[in-house]
Nucleic acid binder design. Structure first.
Lengths: 228, 228
DNA sequence: ACCTGAACACCGTTCAAGT
DNA sequence: ACCTGAACACCGTTCAAGT
C-alpha cells in the first residue's frame, strides 16, 4: 500500500490462446459484447496488451475463435443417431439454445461462410439432408436456406438479448406487444392485430415451427423425384 | 491562405434530419459502414457536431433512420397487383436487391422487431400470406419464418460485401471455393464436394430457391385445413 | 432555435523495452 | 519466446459559447 508503483501481480502459469479465448467467452457471457475490451482482458488475466496480441491477431480474431469454440461444442452435443428429420430438429434447437445462452454469437455468425463456426453447421445440416433423401441437385439450396433461416433467427435473438439486458424476457416481449398494439391500424393492420399473439408467443416453439415449415417444403422437393 | 484560423465555409441552407440521413446513406453506400463517422458527416455537410446532434439522437439513431428509409423505398417499389405468391417473391427479391445495393443494411436489420424497417417487412409479408390463404393460426409462424430467412440471407450478404470490398464478387466466391476445396475431406466431406458447386452458384437464384422452399412448406399447411 | 468546435472518455493497436 | 505498459490514432459524445 506504501509503494505507489507496485508491479502488478504477475501470472505464474503461461498464457495461451485457449486461456484467452476462454476468458473472453466468460466476459462476453457475463457482460455482453460491449464488455469485452482488450483492457478488460488484461485485467482479468493480469497481463499486458502485448501478451494478448502475441497469441491472438486482433479482436476480430478473438471473437471468431470464441464463436467457433461455442458452436463446435453445440454441434458435438447433438447425437446423430436417430431419424434424419429428428436430428435436424435437434441441430437447430441446439444452435438456438447456444445462441440464446451466448447472444453475442448472433453478430459472429453473420461473418461469411468461410468462418469455421459456419463450416461446422453447413456440414452437419448437409449430412442430415442427404440422409433425409434430398436429391443432390437440391442439396446446396436446401442447406443454404435452412442455415440462413437459423442465422436470421440468431440475429434477431441477439438483438432481443441486447435490448432486454437485465429486463426479463417476458417484460420486453410485453413492451414490444404494447408498441405493436399502438401502431396505426390503417397502416399496419396485421401487426396491430398480431400484438396479442406476440405476448403469448414462445420463441423456441416458433423457431421450431419455422424449421418444420422448411422441412415440409423439402419434402415436396424430395417427392418431385421418382424413386430411384 | 494567409489567415491561419479561417472560419469554415458556413452552409447557407438549413440542416434537417432528412438531409443528414441522406448524406449518411451516401457515405455508407460509397465507403461502407466503417466510413460513416460523425467527423466525416461534419465535413460533408460543412457543419459541426452539435448541429448533427441537434437533429439526431446518436449514431445508432442515424443508422436506423437510414435503414428505414431504404427499406421503405424497397417495399413501395413492389406492386401488390398480381398473385400473392408472385408478390411474395417480388417482395423477397426487392429486399435482396436493396440489401445488395446497401450492404450495411445487413447489420441494421438484426436489431429487433420493433424497428420501423422490420415493421414494414412483417406487415407486407403477412398481408400476402393472408391473401395466399394461410390460416390465421399459422400466419404468425409463417411470416416469422420467411422474414427470418430473409434476414439471415441479409446478414450473410453483408458479410460477403464487407469481405469482398473492392474485389469483385466472382473472385471472392472463387476464393471461398478454393478454401472449401482445401478442407479435410474426412472432416468436411460434403463441403469439400460442394466447392465446385459454390463457384458456379448464383446468390440471387439460390435466395429465391429458398423462398420457394418455404412457400412449398406453407402450401402443405394450407392444405392441411379443409376448405372452409 | 440552431449551430460551432474544443475537450472528454474510451476504444483497438503498436512497439521499444524488459525478462 | 514471452511479456509489460506507455503512447498513438481515432472513435462517439458533450457542452460552453456563439449567432
Amino acid at each position: 500500500m506504501a509503494t505507489k508503483a507496485r508491479r502488478a501481480p504477475r501470472r505464474t502459469d503461461a498464457l495461451s490462446r485457449e486461456v484467452i479465448v476462454e476468458a473472453a467467452t466468460q466476459i462476453l457471457d457475463t457482460g455482453g459484447e460491449e464488455a469485452l475490451t482488450l483492457r478488460a482482458l488484461t485485467v482479468r488475466l493480469s497481463t499486458g496488451y502485448g501478451a494478448l496480441y502475441h497469441h491472438v491477431a486482433n479482436k476480430d480474431d478473438l471473437l471468431a475463435a470464441a464463436a467457433d469454440a461455442v458452436i463446435a461444442r453445440a454441434m458435438t452435443d447433438v447425437t446423430a443417431e436417430g431419424e434424419p428429420r429428428e436430428t435436424l430438429r435437434a441441430i437447430a434447437l441446439s444452435l438456438f439454445d447456444a445462441i440464446n445462452a451466448h447472444p453475442w454469437l448472433g453478430a459472429q455468425l453473420s461473418r461469411g461462410p468461410w468462418r469455421p463456426a459456419l463450416l461446422e453447421i453447413y456440414e452437419s445440416v448437409g449430412e442430415q439432408l442427404e440422409a433425409l433423401g434430398v436429391p443432390e441437385y437440391a442439396l446446396f439450396d436446401s442447406a443454404g436456406a435452412l442455415v440462413n433461416y437459423i442465422l436470421g433467427v440468431a440475429g434477431q435473438n441477439a438483438a432481443n438479448a441486447r435490448a432486454a439486458k437485465d429486463v426479463d424476457r417476458t417484460a420486453s416481449l410485453a413492451a414490444v406487444a404494447v408498441q405493436w398494439a399502438q401502431l396505426d391500424p390503417a397502416r399496419y393492420p396485421r401487426l396491430h392485430k398480431a400484438a396479442a399473439r406476440l405476448r403469448e408467443h414462445d420463441d423456441r416453439r416458433q423457431f421450431l415451427a419455422g424449421v418444420d415449415l422448411f422441412l415440409a417444403g423439402i419434402e415436396t422437393v424430395r417427392r418431385r423425384l421418382p424413386e430411384k
